[in-house]
Simulated scan of single mutants.
Amino acid sequence: MRKSLSSTSTRTFLLWPLVVGVEQAVSRRRVGVAGLPLMAAGYAAYRLAGAYRLPRAGGPPGMSQGMPERLVEDGPYRWTRNPMYAGHLLFLSGLALSTRSPLATGLLGWHVRWFADRVRRDEQRLHERFGAAYDEYRARTPRWIPGPRTGSRSAEQ
């Protein structure tokens, strides 16, 4: 994870929890534990998928920094095309659930839209880079919700 506010992961896993924590303290609302497993699972998904992808795909650590050299279709990428992005959203869901904060809920909603837009741009770039191989991967692997590869999945999932 890059330690810069321009880094999506820094904002998701460090800045937003800090900001929401301050909001909770100022408003004197208690933080619950209900969302902590989601936060842990989201962070783990992000880290593990990234650690899996980087040595196999080559290229820079993230799509915002450049293109991978190879398409990764196995490991966590066998079950969903975006396990790292899904990890961000799972973490933010846990933050909203634990805090019941309007700010955390708003951040989650904003990020759902932001990641959806980012995925559409990434998919176009991956199609341009890998052509039919990416199209075949996309056809059999869901975009967000992990599940078995079937070959008949909608690319919009």
Rank of each mutant, 00 (worst) to 15 (best):
R125D: 07
R121D: 08
Q24V: 04
L90Y: 00
R81M: 13
G75A: 07
R11S: 10
S7Q: 08
Q157F: 13
L90V: 15
G147E: 05
L107D: 03
Q24K: 06
L71C: 06
H111D: 11
A86R: 04
T99F: 07
F13S: 11
V112E: 05
S93A: 15
N82I: 02
A116Q: 11
E123N: 04
M63I: 11
Q65W: 07
P76F: 01
P146A: 08
Y134W: 09
L14Y: 13
G21C: 01
V20H: 03
S6E: 08
A57F: 09
P142W: 08
W16F: 15
G131T: 00
V26G: 01
L15I: 06
R78S: 05
R153W: 03
F91Q: 10
A104G: 08
L71A: 05
R120F: 00
T141L: 03
G21A: 00
G131A: 15
A41Q: 03
L90P: 00
E156A: 09
A139H: 04
M39L: 09
E123M: 06
L48E: 04
P142N: 14
H111Y: 15
A44Q: 06
P148F: 05
H88A: 02
S98R: 09
R78W: 10
S4G: 04
Y85G: 09
G106A: 11
S154R: 10
S7W: 07
L97E: 13
G147M: 10
L89G: 07
F91K: 06
G75S: 08
R78K: 15
A57Q: 05
T150F: 00
P76S: 04
E69C: 03
R47T: 14
A57C: 08
E128I: 02
T150Y: 01
Y134S: 03
I145C: 11
S154N: 09
R129A: 13
R125W: 04
S4D: 15
G32K: 06
V31N: 04
P148R: 14
G151D: 06
M39S: 08
R129K: 11
R149T: 02
H111L: 15
P102I: 11
M84A: 12
R2V: 10
P37C: 06
L97G: 14
D135L: 11
V119M: 05
Q124C: 03
M67F: 04
G94K: 10
P60F: 09
Q157I: 13
G21E: 01
R129M: 01
L5D: 07
P17L: 08
Y77N: 05
G147R: 14
R118Q: 02
Y77Q: 04
G50K: 02
R47W: 15
R149D: 01
A25K: 09
L95P: 12
R153K: 12
G87I: 10
R56F: 03
L48N: 03
G87A: 11
T12K: 06
Y137S: 02
P37R: 02
T8H: 11
D122Q: 14
Y43M: 09
P17V: 12
Y43A: 12
Y46E: 14
Q65I: 07
P83S: 11
W110Y: 15
E69T: 10
A44M: 04
Y43P: 00
N82P: 05
A40S: 02
G35D: 09
G75P: 07
R125S: 11
E123V: 07
S9G: 10
L14P: 01
P76R: 05
R121W: 06
Q124P: 00
A44V: 15
L71Y: 03
L14S: 08
S7H: 05
H111W: 15
W79Q: 01
V72D: 01
S9F: 06
V72I: 14
T105W: 13
